[in-house]
């Protein structure tokens, strides 16, 4: 993978609780996601998929190892700086509840830019461009309750990648959609990654994971396999397969 390195997890661990009740959610996870790459994470319930996503996006802090976003080690950043990095570089797409109901599509997409200090007019212009990229410019003035589930997810992807944001972290983004609409959303995500974004997708659906360049399997917080053929994946395979 020759694109710019956007996300790196270096020997990342996450333990919830302490002592006898400690639960190991992630153990020594090492992975890279480059610009232009969509990576899917699969694994049984409780394998650590969502923890991995939260740690990758700086929503949760690892108890061991380091996470780099766009070259910044997020463990070195304090509250405001971390929040700013997240606003500028990272977008999330969840299964539902992605959009603020009282804001139109364009207001939802422009929100992170406005929070980051951009002028409203400039933020709206960038938001309109982002909506255009996911092929729903006509939804700009519509409120979420007047959109279908698939349209809402497209708007969420636009918000995830608006402005300078290059990393989209998606947690079961098609979970609430019928299979055709879900596939359309995956197609949009794939297109945005082909255009230079980096994507990390958590899913339990093999059909959806298959849109990724690489599929990583987690079990008990450990990467046990990968469909990738990159040097990193080969190293992981050699080290982690039991």
């Amino acid at each position: 993978m020759s694109g710019e390195l956007i996300l790196r997890l270096d020997d990342v661990s996450r333990v919830h609780g302490e002592g006898a009740t400690a639960v190991r959610a992630l153990a020594g996870v090492t992975m890279d996601v480059h610009a232009g790459e969509l990576v899917a994470v699969m694994g049984p319930s409780g394998s650590g998929k969502s923890t991995l996503l939260n740690v990758a996006g700086g929503l949760d802090a690892p108890t061991g190892g380091r996470v780099f976003i766009a070259g910044w080690c997020i463990g070195d950043l304090k509250g405001d700086a971390l929040a700013r990095l997240r606003r500028r570089r990272v977008g999330f797409v969840f299964q539902d509840l992605n959009l603020i109901p009282s804001l139109t599509a364009i207001e939802n997409v422009a929100l992170p830019l406005e929070l980051d200090g951009r002028r409203v007019r400039e933020a709206r212009r960038m938001a309109r461009a982002a909506l255009q990229l996911v092929s729903v410019p006509e939804l700009a003035d519509r409120f979420p309750d007047k959109m279908s589930g698939g349209q809402q997810q497209r708007v969420a992807i636009a918000r995830a990648l608006v402005g300078d944001r290059r990393l989209v972290l998606a947690d079961e983004p098609t979970g609430a959609l019928d299979s055709h609409t879900g596939e359309e959303v995956l197609r949009v995500l794939r297109e945005r990654c082909d255009a230079g974004a980096a994507g990390l997708l958590v899913t339990h659906e093999a059909r959806h994971a298959a849109w990724a360049d690489r599929v990583i399997f987690l079990r008990d917080g450990v990467i046990v396999d990968s469909t990738g053929t990159s040097a990193v994946a080969e190293t992981l395979l050699g080290a982690a397969v039991v």
């Binding site: 699969m42 093999a206 059909r207 994971a209 298959a210 990724a212 599929v215 399997f217 396999d225 990968s226 469909t227």
Partner: peptide, 10 residues
């Protein structure tokens, strides 16, 4: 097998 089948699916 799952990895191989996923590759095929990709």
């Amino acid at each position: 097998q799952r990895t191989a089948t996923l590759r095929h699916l990709q």
